[in-house]
């Protein structure tokens, strides 16, 4: 079985267009087939997509909230504003309140946590809610390998404890580089290897870079389709019926 690898790019606001284009080309060179670019302006995203998207390399936008918005109300406002515009929506949970709310909200697909507080914020109750409402947990691996040496030990410890909880509960885990620079890009197999060290299962780690994000994306693309009505109900042959 050939795996379709998926990665996320999280460019910061100061990134130039050329650097972003290099990032995308590098991701393509590393044999990723799908890439999610988070929080990018529509104009820049369209340009990048036009230049780089091919039949075997697909680019999708992604909305990431929570890192800049301190209040829950601000996040809800932005979610309402961008409803049905993004195939993937992720929330970075900086407080336990936001984590508990995001785990129950149907608009949210992915939950992220600051890695140094991973084990504290990703509590057992949040894990139960995530399981109940079909949410995925994302681990931005670039924070692990780009951080300074003195925080390597707490970072790996926090992540391992949190991922052990997620594996025990059966929550789908997504491993992504979430990098903002060219230098932080890594091979999909290396990301999976780092994931394997953290969650002690090679198949789960490989699924986290390929199968789990792919199934999530496919499901959400169906949902934002104009012919989608509700789970299991689609409008068929829409154009033909209108012509008749």
């Amino acid at each position: 079985m050939v795996r379709i690898f998926v990665d996320t790019l999280s460019p910061n606001q100061y990134i130039s267009e050329t650097e972003l284009a290099t990032c995308v080309k590098l991701v393509k060179a590393f044999n990723f087939s799908v890439i999610w670019i988070s929080n990018l302006s529509n104009h820049l995203f369209d340009q990048i997509k036009k230049k780089n998207q091919t039949k075997n390399f697909l680019i999708y936008p992604r909305l990431d909230l929570g890192a800049k918005q301190e209040k829950k109300e601000d996040i809800i406002f932005l979610l309402r504003q961008n409803r049905r515009e993004y195939p993937v929506i992720g929330i970075e949970c900086l407080t336990p309140d936001i984590a508990a709310w995001a785990a129950q909200d149907n608009r949210v697909d992915i939950l992220k946590f600051p890695v140094l507080q991973f084990n504290r914020l990703f509590s057992l109750s949040v894990a139960n809610l995530m399981l109940k409402f079909n949410k995925s947990l994302e681990v931005p691996l670039s924070t692990l390998y780009t951080s300074s040496e003195r925080v390597h030990i707490p970072l790996i410890r926090e992540t391992r404890l949190a991922l052990a909880r997620a594996v025990k509960k059966g929550i789908p885990i997504i491993f992504s580089s979430s990098s903002s620079k060219v230098r932080d890009q890594r091979n999909p197999l290396e990301l999976a290897a780092l994931g394997q060290i953290l969650c002690l299962d090679s198949q789960k780690a490989l699924d986290g870079v390929s199968t789990i994000p792919n199934t999530l994306l496919e499901g959400n693309l169906k949902k934002i389709d104009p012919n989608y009505i509700m789970p299991g109900v689609f409008r068929l042959n829409f154009d033909q019926n209108e012509e008749e």
Binding site: F30, L141, Y145, N187, A193
Partner: peptide, 23 residues
């Protein structure tokens, strides 16, 4: 093998030069 690949993730520079190493 996963240990070697994980080690490669952490390589950034060597002798004051940026170094990219990948399997």
């Amino acid at each position: 093998i996963s240990h070697v690949r994980t080690g490669l993730c952490y390589i950034h520079k060597y002798n004051n030069h940026y170094l990219y190493a990948f399997s």
